[in-house]
């Protein structure tokens, strides 16, 4: 499947789901309704972009969820009480992510194991900082996340902005091209004299940055934090990247697709609520939607190959 059609499927799945939601609940078709539908999608989209940075270099990050929870706890405590210290902690967390990337490359460790281990570290730190739910959101992030821009709700503006920034950063800049090249053929990159340790550390640092943004915006929406607030983000972010047309290996990713994938997953939750499905079944139903979309993608890929064979 070439890159141009890669983006088509996530767009269509989002449109179909949105149409279904509007059909079942026409009142959602408003400024307020859209904001409500997509509000919680913004931190998920940020976490998905963070995961995408890791998948881009052929790794996978199982610590996104606990990392975002950790950041949320720091935001609701240190960043609120002592902004300077809070900011430093978050910067140190990004540096920590970069260090993990460097370690994985330098020692040739499997990322899945290292990040699984790190998920316990972040989770433990989060519990240390905030043993029971609480804390308070810094005012500026609260103001930002509840802002009401004219015409288009904040959630949509933020999502579009994120998609554009991530697209330019990864798909357009020359640095982005080199980072994707690491996923495509790391040996060729290394042979041209690039430091793979630096590049992988860079990709992980970007993941850390977007993870931090995810945690901060999440607190901006929820006003308080909890050490387990974002645990499900790990799987949601992986699903979002794949739903958005990304692949686990080969550096084939789409930032715009990843954001759309995250929105689709968030919307699937609302859709199932509208169907009055019991929450017990929702996770399973979300999985079913994911499988459905991926099955359609496989069909597209197959017919694409058949056409190529005919023309080739």
């Amino acid at each position: 499947m070439s890159a141009r059609y890669r983006i088509l499927l996530p767009v269509v799945s989002l449109a179909v789901l949105l149409a279904a939601v509007f059909y079942m609940q026409p009142r959602a078709m408003s400024y307020f309704g859209l904001n409500l539908l997509f509000n919680l999608a913004v931190p998920i989209a940020l976490a998905t972009v963070a995961q995408m940075m890791i998948i881009m270099v052929n790794d996978i990050d199982l610590s996104v969820g606990t990392f975002v929870s950790f950041v949320a706890c720091v935001t609701a405590t240190f960043l609120h009480d002592t902004p300077l210290l809070g900011g430093l902690i978050l910067l140190a967390a990004i540096a920590g992510y970069a260090a993990i990337g460097a370690l994985i490359e330098a020692r040739q460790l499997p990322a899945i194991v290292v990040t699984l281990g790190m998920s316990f570290v972040w989770g433990g730190l989060a519990v240390l900082i905030l043993p029971s739910p609480g804390g308070a959101a810094p005012d500026w992030i609260r103001t930002l996340m509840t802002a009401k821009p004219p015409l288009v709700p904040m959630a949509i503006v933020a999502s579009v902005l994120l998609a554009v920034v991530a697209h330019v950063l990864i798909m357009r800049t020359s640095t982005g091209a080199i980072l994707r090249a690491v996923g495509g053929n790391a040996r060729a990159v290394g042979r041209s004299g690039w430091s793979l340790v630096q590049l992988r550390a860079g990709a992980y640092a970007l993941a850390g940055l977007f993870g931090v943004l995810s945690g901060v915006t999440l607190v901006g929406l929820t006003t308080s934090a909890d050490a387990n607030i974002a645990l499900r983000y790990t799987l949601l972010s992986i699903a979002g990247v794949i739903l958005g047309g990304g692949e686990f290996t080969g550096g084939r990713i789409s930032p715009v697709g990843a954001v759309i994938g995250a929105l689709t997953l968030a919307l699937a939750g609302s859709f199932l609520s509208f169907m009055r499905l019991s929450p017990d079944w929702q996770i399973g139903a979300q999985g079913a939607i994911l499988i459905l979309v991926l099955a359609v993608r496989l069909l597209f890929a197959r017919s694409g190959r058949r056409k190529e064979a005919q023309h080739g």
């Binding site: 020359s174 640095t175 090249a181 996923g183 060729a188 042979r191 550096g251 084939r252």
Partner: peptide
Amino acid sequence: LSLCPNLTVEENLRIPQRDLTG
């Protein structure tokens, strides 16, 4: 073959040529 299959032809040239930036 040592190209990156996920990049375009022009992006692949960026790998050996470091002055392709900005």
